[in-house]
Write a protein that binds this DNA or RNA. Structure first.
Lengths: 230, 230
DNA sequence: ATTATCTATAGATCTATAGATAATGC
DNA sequence: ATTATCTATAGATCTATAGATAATGC
């Protein structure tokens, strides 16, 4: 209706006119907060700093969120959920149409891609000490479920000697830790195909698979993901 | 001289009389800060909270440290240095008296033990976002050196297929990440022999070693460490 | 009328400095 | 005299609330 140099949005106009990012105010806050939390940490990031980056006043933040906590909760949960959803479907197909090693490789690839593509490397937030607090219980439960899946699939894929020496819970911890190498890699640069292959390879080898089995599992996973066509 | 219920220390006595921990005031501060930084993070920990835990007034902290930053710097550096020192000597002996795989296994074991024994799981501090700042450059350089050593030893120990697919820098990142699984394990409980074996095993396997080679490398590493007799 | 912002501000921090003080050491 | 603490406090935050205001929607 109006000429396109003004968005004609609801509510009192901002002092700083909004940079037409296409995001809703709520998402603008999430995005700004993510960048700042990742760079400076949660406690070191003030609501004022977030608001400033968005281009609103500090108090306006409270119209959208009850507080900083709520912002972090939302960032955390929206970052594990995608992996978790895909994974739930995946596990049911083992060992019918999919081998355990293939499913594990697929899980690792999904997780790597999720982490590699989050805006501002949000995965870093998992590492914040604040996330140990009660408020983030829900997120931690989701992440634990992901880790348990790593443990189950890893154990099923593992060779006898590994299975005998490493219980599922421990293997899960090791594998998820490996997958999250992506988070560290992103701190220094882009994540490329070589990185993805190295990490999936390390996961499969950690389960005891040899060179040939690694290749086979990777091939199976790629077919799986192509079929799922996310 | 005085009766043993009073330490008769120098300086004005504390309001809270000191719990005879044997630590110097400086070390008491470091210890209290470590516990709080690990639990709540750096920025969320006030100088007041540290002082309270020590049993001194907030301002007294500044007699020993110029600020919170200095405390963190000292905690970080004293936590990587030990691993680094041992490791420097180790690498020179490859491939003379020690195989690359044996040296890598030894490195992993040293690192695991260092991390498993730090008071309050100080390794957690590596993950704080604040540590990315300029003030902690020195620590990051030390840690990078450790990571580079992982990369070099890992590459030398690796089988041909792994060496062909994973450059040293990337392998170093993966291996150090694996070793630091200990940090996560300590968050939920004690680190035991099974954990140590699982992690060293995962590192060696990630380099492509098979079951027999893993056993051999581990044996070699244990002999090495027994000889070094730390 | 509803929405999304704004201004203003109270109250609670938090850091770092200035200067006093209560011990021991010489 | 030296040391290690103390008390007091300035100045700079920071969070969250109250209430006003400038748009659109009906």
């Amino acid at each position: 209706m109006s000429s396109d140099d003004r968005p004609a949005r609801l509510g009192r106009p901002r002092v700083v006119p909004d940079t037409a990012s296409g995001l809703s105010p709520r998402d603008q806050i999430l995005d700004a907060a993510a960048a700042l939390f990742v760079e400076n940490g949660f406690s070191a990031t003030s609501t004022r700093a977030i608001a400033e980056r968005v281009g609103i006043r500090q108090a306006s933040l409270y119209y959208h969120f009850a507080g900083k906590d709520e912002v972090l909760v939302e960032l955390l949960t929206t970052s594990v959920r995608p992996s978790l959803d895909v994974v739930r479907g995946l596990e049911e197909r083992v060992p019918g149409s999919v081998s355990a090693a293939g499913a594990l490789a697929a899980l690792v690839l999904i997780d790597i891609d999720t982490l590699a593509r989050t805006p501002h490397n949000i995965g870093t937030l998992y590492l914040l000490p604040e996330v140990q607090g009660d408020r983030y219980q829900g997120f931690r439960a989701d992440r634990q479920e992901l880790q348990d899946t790593y443990g189950r699939l890893g154990t099923r894929a593992a060779t006898e000697d590994v299975r005998g020496a490493v219980p599922p819970a421990l293997l899960g911890g090791i594998l998820i830790q490996l997958a999250e190498t992506v988070i560290q890699l992103r701190r220094t640069g882009e994540v490329d195909e070589q990185d993805r292959e190295a990490i999936t390879g390390a996961c499969l080898r950690a389960c005891g698979l040899g060179a040939a089995a690694v290749v086979a599992a990777r091939r199976e996973a790629e077919a799986l993901l192509a079929a799922a066509a996310v």
